[in-house]
């Protein structure tokens, strides 16, 4: 059998997905036996031009991590879509926008101001700022155009499969790769993970009746090893998050932050979690309810930590 042609790419991401791909460890040898990696900026020397020169659909599978927030990423997403038979959104950023997706609370100008102008530690350097185009005698120098809005991969191009996680767990990555190598592909649109139910379903902490009088931030209390974190007043998104990771975070006293995305069938992970928070509050007093809820300091960051661009409203209104 001819070897599979595999490409891997990164867009608006942190590099963690590359580490996660290497986390499959010696299974990578199995992968290399069955597949040739034709493009992988982090590890091999193929250039954009080489990809451009490939015939359409000549790459069998492309694992694409990172969200889309500038013109270069959009260009590469479209190019890799054209060249690949199967395009996979790998990791929370490509699937749902991820942490960079929280940029949708801001816009191009305010992000620029913060990064290049307003922070105290930024040297002003005579107000020299990066330009998307700069002409010198040797030719034109260009930089990608930064967008107001971060998009998920499937908002820009058609996507076959999704591998969730920030970053995806080794076993999740391997589940997908194994299916590819064995040619046992799930239906288009599948989010590949070991569990379609919630993280709570895999969590060993004990749930009783969730009734809380106060919401705590993580540093404010030290949870015991057994009680459900949400019942202790910590905003654990396990109820609104797809399982498959093995409930790693709550096992080590960290509330789940939602990186595996919404559970099957839910379109808006944040609204789902918001609803869950509201149902665990124990009060029949309007004033007290307000006081308890006021302790949710950052509702968007809490409910949509990894999924703002994928949400119903998608971004904060532009002024």
């Amino acid at each position: 059998m001819a070897k599979l042609k595999l490409a891997l790419y990164w867009a608006a991401s942190c590099g963690g997905c590359e580490i996660a791909q290497l986390m499959i460890g010696d299974k990578i040898l199995k992968l290399i036996e069955a597949a040739d990696i034709v493009f992988w900026p982090v590890a091999i020397d193929a250039k954009y031009d080489d990809v451009e020169a490939m015939p359409a659909k000549s790459i069998d599978v492309c694992l694409f991590n990172g969200a889309i927030r500038n013109s270069e990423q959009e260009h590469m997403a479209k190019m890799l879509r054209e060249k690949s038979k199967i395009l996979i959104a790998y990791g929370a950023c490509a699937c749902r926008g991820g942490i960079p997706g929280l940029g949708n609370l801001h816009d191009r100008q305010s992000i620029f101001n913060t990064v290049y102008r307003d922070t105290v530690s930024t040297e002003k350097n005579g107000n020299i700022f990066p330009q998307t185009l700069f002409r010198v005698s040797e030719g034109d120098l260009t930089l990608p155009v930064f967008y107001d809005t971060v998009s998920t991969l499937n908002q820009v191009v058609d996507v076959e499969y999704y591998i969730p996680g920030c970053p995806p767990e080794e076993k999740t990555t391997w589940l997908a790769l194994e299916a590819l190598l064995e040619g046992k592909l799930p239906p288009k649109g599948t989010v590949i993970s070991h569990n379609v139910k919630a993280v709570c379903d895999e969590c060993s902490r004990k749930r009783d009746i969730k009734k809380i009088k106060k919401i705590y931030r993580n540093f404010e209390i030290i949870p015991d090893a057994e009680t459900c974190l949400l019942e202790l007043g910590l905003l654990c998104t396990g109820v609104a998050t797809r399982g498959g990771c093995g409930a790693l975070c709550p096992q080590v006293n960290m509330p789940c932050t939602g990186c595996y995305g919404p559970v099957e069938g839910v379109i808006d992970q944040g609204a789902h979690f918001l609803s869950a928070i509201a149902s665990v509050i124990d009060s029949k007093d309007e004033e007290e309810i307000r006081t308890i809820i006021n302790d949710v300091l950052d509702p968007v960051g809490t409910c949509y930590r990894y999924s703002l661009p994928d949400s119903l409203v998608r971004r904060a209104s532009l002024k």
């Binding site: 609370l105 918001l274 949710v296 950052d298 409203v313 971004r315 209104s317």
Partner: peptide
């Protein structure tokens, strides 16, 4: 609170 953060 949430929609306010989203500029609504």
């Amino acid at each position: 609170k949430l929609v306010k953060q989203l500029g609504i």
